[in-house]
Design a protein around this nucleic acid. Structure first.
Lengths: 413, 413
DNA sequence: TAGAGTTAGTTCGTCTAACGACCAAACAAA
DNA sequence: TTTGTTTGGTCGTTAGACGAACTAACTCTA
């Protein structure tokens, strides 16, 4: 048992906004904070009793009862059975109520679109993946297409009597802090107010609509659903045609001043190396991306099968392919060495196609990363492979919605 | 005037500790938060009246009166004169009380030691700089030496009737989250529990003692004392014999999982470049550090004068020196390009000897940085020179003490 | 089978601290 | 003077956490 964790001076700090002036607190904040504390506790320790919550959080039993009643009113918690065969009065166990709400995440990419809905527990309610000509239509048409999918997801949720808590869209590109896509080369987008346009297209949807970079959201997915021992400092790497990073430090996504952090794909790894579509040379994306294996002009639709072929050849011991994979891993490790030195995350998670290639790249890349880290043992940084599969960004988009609930924006009542 | 900034849903979140369990809030937290809000407001808007505070923070007038009374009791605020020649009742103006407290920062380095004390306003009370054989004594002796200086600073403060709020020591090396120095090659230290040993040497000093990396503390100094338009995302670069970075994102120092973040000095900038004392090649420290200008084995004591000579030669247009400076700037820009892409800070601040060299390196380095950034216009990232002078890390060490006050750990009563 | 012991959760009164409304003080302008 | 404006304090209200006492519901033991 953890025992009470109450620590004398509690710091209440505004982490989000930049210079948005002073942020005083009042009683409703205390309430919101404590409601969120209980909610998070139940999420991580379900099923548990009110007494468990009180003991572990340090909150008073009476307070916990009141908070739990509130959460039950809001249909966020549910009482399940009683404990049996124990000394003392049996406890009524509490679990998250999975049925009344849904969080929706949509990932758009050049050639496909993934939609995911999860309940409050994070359990997947639906997962759609379909071809989507994101790279070959106008942004307006793409937004219309995304809105169409969003409407169908929402309808489905409504049919299941679920209230949608929010919708987030993941985009491979630079997304600013307002959810406006400033640049998405692969999509051919520039200055598209995705969150705003989508909210407009959905006509007063009754839930918040936001957009973010796919790597950022992948990182959020790993933070919430990944099994990294509760690491609060992690970096997630997408391994699609482009390579991007999502940076989580001290338990929150760090986007930088304008929201453009994590753009690891175009840092220079091999000076004077092969040219990148961005106009520079030797970018990580070029020397540690799929292009190393597939040649530089594969159509998006072919990537999947081409990678499968690479995997097959690697399995049969094809020397040329193994050499390519080793080169890729080495270059990736160089990039990760930079990340380890600069950010000292507890774990770096490889996503996307890197997952399939993992058996041939992780060891080398990790060794390279650690050998380049100035901190002994890489400062404790591990390199692991994502277990979330292809929907990571979409899942992270949904996770972003759940995050806002977890941090005190409670629905209901 | 700003007008009320009260925003409906206030998020109260624990930013510091990692997985330290749930952190419920209670009334004392509300009080502490609001006291800190008022304190910060007065810091930034002094002199100001209670009415100003109420209007700008959204707190109730009565609440502000109560909070201000509390802060005056704690001798953190002081009433100054009344306003005159205005319609209505004259306001009693409030300012930070500079006299009763002091925050102490000490920076140790290979050959010198800097001690700084500031009052609550951040105004310098003393600034000592002296030779110190940090690189050529045992860690134990060094700690004793630091303790000696610390005692003298504390005595001086006591003589001025000031209470010392805390002491932080800046060290060029890897410092973990507990203030233990894990590795400081230049000092020849390894696993020295600096914060702990120093507290012991000071025998129950009655104030918290901590230690951190010099670059981290430099970044804190820039955050508090620098003039960067309130940028909440910044990276500070030390330009001593080694090069380190301090990373501030969303208004707080981000140290990574073990506290070893910001180690930019040993990321590989020129593969196969000149050897570094760390055993690797082409590290930023080697290709964009002072070694480029001074040759690789200058004794610490000579650095100052050697740099002055470089500056003189550059001023007279010495081609060879200008070429070296340009090379240095180019390499520095490469490293900063990585920082801009990965972290998207609003500003990168150059400290240490880079300040003297600024006229010949900033333009080139910034251009290089921006040209390497994938976000248009570098995502708004500017490269500037520190205005804080040599004592930056020591000043940041003191700033760290003030930060803890600003975030609610109030002294007095 | 009747306590005795143990654990869960509720009720009730207390206390902290923010808030809203009101008011007196102190000034400028008319 | 009178009127209006602004400051800052007082007072009663209210939200909500806390502590203690209490009830509920079980197991264990003699």
């Amino acid at each position: 048992m953890m025992g009470p964790t109450r620590n004398g001076a509690q710091l209440i700090t505004n982490t989000q906004g930049s210079a948005s002036g002073p942020q005083p607190a009042d009683f409703t904040d205390v309430r919101a904070t404590n409601l969120a504390v209980v909610l998070r506790f139940v999420r991580e320790n379900a099923p548990c009793s009110r007494a468990d919550i009180a003991a572990s959080t340090g909150l008073n039993k009476a307070t916990v009862s009141s908070l739990v009643a509130d959460l039950i009113d809001r249909r966020l918690l549910r009482e399940t059975g009683l404990t049996e065969n124990r000394v003392g009065r049996p406890a009524t166990m509490l679990v998250l109520d999975g049925s009344p709400y849904a969080a929706v995440g949509i990932e758009v990419n050049v050639d496909y679109l993934t939609a995911v809905a999860v309940d409050l527990k994070g359990e997947e309610l639906l997962s759609w993946r379909r071809a989507f000509p994101g790279g070959s239509t106008s942004a307006g048409q793409a937004v219309a297409g995304i809105a169409g999918v969003a409407r169908r997801v929402v309808n489905r949720m409504t049919k299941e009597a679920r209230q949608v808590l929010g919708l987030t869209v993941a985009v491979p590109g630079l997304v600013d802090l307002n959810g406006s896509v400033r640049l998405a080369p692969n999509m051919g987008w520039r200055d598209v107010d995705l969150a705003g346009d989508l909210a407009k297209a959905l006509r007063d949807p009754g839930f918040p609509v936001s957009a973010d970079n796919d790597a950022n959201l992948g990182a959020l997915a790993e933070l919430r659903f990944g099994s990294h021992g509760g690491a609060q400092n992690l970096v997630y790497l997408t391994g699609e045609i482009g390579v991007g990073a999502g940076v989580v430090l001290d338990g929150r996504l760090r986007r930088g001043g304008a929201g453009f952090g994590g753009e690891i794909g175009h840092i220079e790894i091999v000076p004077g190396g092969p040219p990148c579509h961005c106009g520079r040379h030797g970018c990580l994306e070029v020397v540690a991306g799929l292009g190393v294996l597939l040649g530089h002009s594969v159509s998006p639709a072919e990537v999947e099968s081409e990678i499968d072929e690479v995997v097959q050849r690697a399995e049969t011991g094809d020397e040329a392919v193994l050499a390519q994979l080793d080169t890729l891993a080495g270059n990736l490790g160089r990039g990760l060495g930079i990340v380890a030195n600069l950010l000292n995350p507890e774990v770096v998670v490889l996503g996307g196609y890197y997952v399939k290639l993992a058996p041939w790249i992780v060891a080398r890349a990790e060794q390279e990363m650690l050998s380049r880290s100035i901190a002994p043992g890489g400062g404790g940084c591990r390199l692991v492979v994502s277990g979330l599969g292809y929907g990571a960004a979409a899942l992270g988009a949904a996770a972003r919605v759940l995050d806002s609930v977890d941090s005190g924006r409670l629905p209901g009542v």
